[in-house]
Structures are given as C-alpha cells and as structure tokens.
C-alpha cells in the first residue's frame, strides 16, 4: 500500500488530501472569498493560506485516521499558479517532509486535475477539457505527454466569468461561477456576443471587454436583465469550448471526453458537452465540485502515480514556478 498526502494552494483554494491506492481518505479544503466586485490578490491569498494551512493539514490526518509515520510521500503543487500562495504551501510541504523523514514530490497542477478526473470517473484515455479560473486547455495523451491540442490565447474561461461577475457585482460566495450558473437559469433573452474560436484555440478577452461595455448600457436601459447576460455569456463561452473539444476528438479518433477544473462542475457546460457526445456516440466523464474544484487529493493522486513510477523531488529542486505547462511533464506512469 502506498499513502500519499497532497498539498494544493495555487489559487484561492487551500486543500490537503490523502490518497491510499486510489482511495480518497480525506480531502479538507478552505476557500478565500473576497467581497463582490473584488478579485483575489496574491499577497492576500497567501496570508489566507498561511492562516489556515496547519489546521487543514491536521484535519486531513485526523479524518484519514493516520499518523505522519503512515505516509509514504509528501506531494505539493509546484506550479502553475500565483507565486506567493504556491510558496506558502511548498514551505509547509518541505518542512513536514523533513520532519517526518519522507520523500517530497513536486506536482504539476494541471496533471493533478487530469489524474484525479481519471481516477474518479475511470475514463481510460479521454480527450480532456481542462477549464478553470487560470487555465483553458484541450488535452490528449500521446507518447508519454499530455499534449495541448487547443488552449486560450489570452485569459482563462473561468477568469472571464469571474471578471464579468465583478462587473455586475455578483457574490463570490461560494464562487462567482456558481452564482452565474444559477442566475443563467432565469435568463430568457439571448444577447449576441462575439464568438472567437481560432482554429483549435479560443479567445475570451474580447468577449469580456464587449460584455463589460454592454452590461452597463443594456442594464440601465432595461434592454435585458443580469440573468439574460449570465445566460448569454455561458451559452457563448461553452459553445466555443464544446467546438474545440469536438475538433480535438475528431483529430484523435477519441470516443471519451473528460471535463476537469473548477468550471467543469458547471452543469450547463456538462449538458452541452453531453449533446455533442451523444451525436458522436462518445462518452462524457465529469466529476462534482469536490474533485473538479482545486483540492489536495488531486495533488496526492498525481503524486501517487509519479511516486509509484519512481519519481521524487530533491529539496534543492523543489522551487515553485508560476509558469509550468501541462506538456512539460514526462508521463512516466502511462504506456
């Protein structure tokens, strides 16, 4: 049996999870929630993480009913993400690894999402749509790499949603995306927005500028409601994502789609993806918010795979990195 503890804190969530051979023993998490109209800044987010990380770590051990000596490896997020929060989490991971005399393992955050999605859904070799506040990528596995077939050329889809929520002062509790999703259900009118798919890539910054500009005018003149805008934005963004996912599937001859990342728990996105999958006779795999949204177990799971294939990270190589592409990692645990 191999037990891995994983530390995640690359954005506004801080989580510690423990995995024993594919079984999630514990996975506590805290979210740094800012007031409506405000995003989360690196230094404030790091302060939040510093304040709760030891409590979350203790919870993870207690819930799993394990002692430090039961753990085989300490995994943490090496990147990508915001610098100050990443350092906070890495410091605690390095310190406990040394206190407990356990090997350390730096994990790519995106790989964490993919491996957790594969574990939970048992998808074998899916085309992966990874959508969150910081990342938007369509990924397929080939020859020891998760290859990026398409991605955003500017901001992430979740960032577009989050920033739209700020403009019209939607609450960030529990998350701006969740609140947009609920409001969109009440939307009646489709407001036409720019649709920007460029080959296999997508662009969201122009859509954001357009809706930021249009929102004020249209809302004050009662041309549409905030709910209509939420609905229209979701329909437009998600159509773009479904289009590039479908094109990647056609390229790879793939019959499986796995959606991961925080935006992946949006039911409307899953519904739209399901329509496309049905038309192609393909299968859709997705997880709920406990595993879609950043969490410690996903880092533990990717760490488990890496550790079992013989990888460890020396302390001197354990620096964090804000930029760390999914395809930089050699996948030593798959054929």
């Amino acid at each position: 049996m191999t037990v891995v503890i994983g530390f995640e804190g690359s954005a506004n969530k801080i989580g510690v999870g423990i995995i024993r051979d594919g079984e999630v023993l514990s996975n506590p998490r805290r979210t740094y929630i800012t007031p409506p109209g405000q995003g989360f800044l690196p230094s404030d987010t790091a302060r939040h993480h510093r304040g709760v990380i030891l409590k979350v770590l203790k919870e993870a051990l207690d819930e799993a009913g394990l002692k430090p000596c039961d753990i085989d490896c300490v995994a943490y997020t090496k990147g990508p993400g915001m610098g100050a929060p990443l350092v906070t989490v890495a410091l605690v991971a390095r310190t406990v690894a040394q206190l407990w005399g356990k090997p350390l393992l730096g994990v790519n955050h995106c790989i964490g999402h993919i491996e957790m999605g594969r574990l939970i859904t048992q998808a074998n070799n899916p085309t992966v749509l990874y959508v969150s506040g910081g990342n938007t990528q369509v990924i397929a596995y080939s020859e020891r790499r998760y290859r990026i077939f398409g991605e955003t050329i500017d901001i992430a889809v979740g960032n577009c949603l989050d920033r739209f929520a700020r403009v019209i002062k939607i609450s960030n509790d529990p998350s701006p995306g969740y609140n947009i999703e609920q409001m969109a259900k009440e939307g009646k009118k489709y407001v036409e927005l720019p649709y920007t798919v460029k080959g296999m890539d997508v662009s969201f910054s122009g859509i954001l500028s357009y809706i930021e500009d249009a929102a004020g005018k249209m809302l004050t003149s009662n041309q549409c409601t905030a709910e209509d805008l939420c609905f229209s934005l979701q329909e437009t963004l998600f159509s773009m994502l479904v289009e590039i996912t479908e094109r990647a599937m056609a390229h790879c001859g793939s019959q499986e789609v796995l959606i991961v990342g925080g935006v992946g728990c949006n039911m409307r996105l899953q519904e739209m993806m399901m329509v496309m999958c049905k038309e192609r006779g393909a299968k859709l795999f997705a997880t709920d918010e406990s595993f879609c949204i950043d969490n410690g177990a996903m880092i533990a799971q990717a760490g488990w795979e890496m550790f079992r294939s013989g990888q460890v990270t020396e302390l001197s190589d354990s620096w964090i990195t804000q930029r760390y592409r999914t395809d930089e990692v050699e996948v030593t645990w798959r054929d």
Binding site: R50, C69, V92, G101
Partner: peptide, 15 residues
Amino acid sequence: LTLVMETMEAFGPPV
C-alpha cells in the same frame, strides 16, 4: 520563517 516555525511546533519534533 514564521510559517516554517509554526509547522515545526505543530508537527515536530523531527523523527
């Protein structure tokens, strides 16, 4: 440094 020291206090002493 404070975070490292707090971690040592909570999860030490070293094995």
